[in-house]
Write a protein that binds this DNA or RNA. Structure first.
Lengths: 146, 146
DNA sequence: GGGTATTACGTGCGTGGCGCACGCTACCCT
DNA sequence: AGGGTAGCGTGCGCCACGCACGTAATACCC
């Protein structure tokens, strides 16, 4: 059982990394977002305006890396750097309207793609899978990673 | 449903990449294998001796990258370069005994770790999860990636 | 059968992204 | 008021990658 799950996870990881997913999801969208910059965009969408240093932990990167990625997104008009009114040293990375739309659209596209393939599953199996996948995150071997 | 699975997959990807998994799995093992070299080692274990060019597609890398990674594994004594007897231009990458043992041990460790956390699941749920995970690979949105 | 095109390999070169550390500005605290 | 601290952006060196070149062995073709 452990072996089967391990092999499946390995395959899943390999395929998702190789699927050129970002390229597919960003079709007909502004050019600023790719596999490198998306985690920053998504992180901001998840939690609202934050500093690069704050995001760094979540993205799994150094502060400098987040800053550089944010610069790209800024150049593409998806992120805005705004001085923190409470602390003028700090800089808050904020999604522009276009940035928020972009990440929403990408998520919608991915979800639709998954939904579509789940539609042909036996009734209830898809729901069971979704539940167990979440359980695997909460109780599985990586439960206290982040 | 699609959204829930998409988010879970994202989390799963993020955590597995961040879990320092290779570091944990290679504890008390020779130093030659890490997250960079493991895919080559594992690929060889899966299919037997192959050329670097052949492996490249599966690893998702250029021929040169595979060759360089193989050189590291060779220096660590886990892989051997053997001339192909049928074509003296070709070079076959082959696992040494130590290389085969290493990959087997790493797989065993990962499987055990997963198994352990699955033991506390409700009866049958783990089996259902394993089955559906495999189904997701075979019929899901990434079914024809590789 | 010999000469040319092709195939396979390893490696130098340029590129890109990373972490570290520096300098600078703004804040805090006594 | 002034020294210490926190937060930022960016230059620097490093490492892995893909591309392309050179070399050696094979395949093809007249």
């Amino acid at each position: 059982m452990g072996h089967a799950v391990a092999e499946a996870l390995g395959d899943l990881l390999k395929r998702t990394l190789r699927a050129n997913l970002y390229q597919a999801l960003t079709e007909n969208i502004g050019e600023g977002v790719d596999e490198v910059t998306y985690p920053v965009l998504s992180g901001l969408a998840r939690t609202g305006p934050r500093s690069a240093a704050d995001l760094a932990g979540e993205v799994g990167l150094d502060r400098s890396g987040v800053s550089r990625r944010a610069s790209r997104l800024e150049a593409a008009g998806l992120v805005r750097r705004a001085p923190d009114p409470a602390d003028r040293r700090a800089v808050l990375l904020t999604l522009t309207d276009q940035g928020a739309e972009t990440v929403a659209l990408m998520r919608e596209r991915l979800a639709a793609r998954i939904e579509e393939s789940l539609n042909s599953w036996p009734e209830g199996e898809a729901r069971s899978f979704a539940r167990n996948l979440r359980r695997f995150l909460d109780e599985g071997p990586f439960k206290d990673v982040q």
